[in-house]
């Protein structure tokens, strides 16, 4: 990449944002994702109570009226008579939330690691990068499973301990909160585990870019003015890495969502009563058979999940085309 040194501001190409805005699939994807996020955030609280609870009307097909309450099940109901539309939107909350926060954790670790490695150079760089190489040699699923096994017990015990302590002290509201939080502790565990595993590629990428940036005159100037390493990293390098980070955040989110759904599909992730797209697909796959097709339980989660991942990938691709100096013009 010889032209990189003659094109110092390559990360902030002036047309970057304009090129994203002109990218129709990317903008369409952004619109879809914003709509989905809005629906997932506002939808569940605004829905009538009758849709949120279990009912006797199990496996009702789409657009059928509720068993008792005067509601319409837009997308049908599942085996517990719960409204699929409600489950799908609360699942979207979990899946998107896990994807976003998991990707954010991996981003922070990867960025810090890559920046330190690239900026320090020499032996530190070699050591840190060999470590990344070695971590690549261990299957990812192994680390994810080990982290889940390690954190799951810890966090459950902590929340349960809090509940018992509150019970003993007579703080009813705290006891109640702790009891309701218990099924959701698994979500936190998933976020931590996936975040702690996904940062390797990010670290490599950031390090490569820092290696280019640190040779540029403005870094030398900052050094000549006596600024410390951390200050240079924070004030001069981080802003120049921001679009690259944003781009790969967008591309890491679908990867984390996919990992989470994969684990939930295998029954290792999100547990009832909480739901994610993966656990909904697992429930759907369990009741599918050629005799009596409950197609809606599989089709709607699959469609929503695939569309969301597609939109995230389109958006990430658009950002990468616009901002990644290595992706060519």
């Amino acid at each position: 990449m010889p032209e990189a040194s003659t094109r110092p501001a390559s990360l902030h190409r002036p047309g970057g944002w304009q090129s994203v805005r002109r990218n129709r699939p990317a903008m369409l994807s952004l619109g879809f994702l914003s709509l989905l996020a809005l629906l997932a955030l506002l939808g569940p609280p605004l829905m009538p109570e009758a849709l949120k609870t279990t009912s006797e009307g199990a496996f009702l097909p789409p657009l059928s009226p509720g068993a008792h309450a005067p509601v319409t099940h837009l997308l049908g109901t599942d085996k517990n008579g719960q409204d699929l539309c409600y489950r799908l939107l609360s699942g979207a909350r979990v899946s998107l939330g896990v994807g976003l926060s998991g990707a954010a954790i991996s981003l922070v670790i990867g960025t810090l690691y890559g920046m330190v490695s690239g900026f320090a150079g020499g032996r530190v760089d070699a050591l840190l990068m060999r470590t990344v190489d070695l971590l690549y040699a261990v299957p990812r699923i192994l680390f994810i499973m080990i982290f889940i096994a390690a954190f799951d017990g810890l966090l459950k015990d902590a929340v349960d301990g809090l509940r018992l302590h509150a019970q003993a002290s007579g703080w009813l509201w705290l006891e109640d909160t702790a009891r309701r939080l218990l099924p959701y502790s698994k979500i936190v565990v998933m976020v931590l585990s996936l975040g702690l595993v996904e940062w390797l590629s990010m670290a490599r990428l950031i390090r490569g870019q820092v290696l280019v940036l640190r040779e540029l005159p403005f870094v030398t100037a900052a050094r000549a003015m006596g600024q410390s390493g951390w200050r240079i990293l924070r004030l001069h390098l981080l802003p120049n890495l921001s679009t690259l980070i944003l781009t790969y955040l967008t591309l890491t989110i679908p990867a984390v969502i996919l990992d989470e759904s994969f684990l939930s599909f295998l029954g290792l992730g999100i547990e009832d009563p909480a739901a994610s797209w993966g656990s909904l697909l697992k429930d759907g796959a369990q009741v599918i058979n050629p005799v009596e097709s409950k197609w809606w339980l599989l089709a709607f989660p699959a469609a929503l999940m695939s569309l969301s991942l597609l939109a995230l990938n389109f958006l990430g691709d658009g950002l990468r085309d616009a901002f990644d100096p290595r992706s060519g013009d």
Binding site: P254, L281, N313
Partner: peptide, 22 residues
């Protein structure tokens, strides 16, 4: 290609079975 990357195997698998096997 982007569609193939975005759809997880646990969706394509049952889908392929439904079409070509069932």
């Amino acid at each position: 290609a982007l569609v193939a990357i975005s759809i997880p195997t646990f969706i394509t698998g049952p889908f392929l079975i439904a079409i070509f096997a069932l």
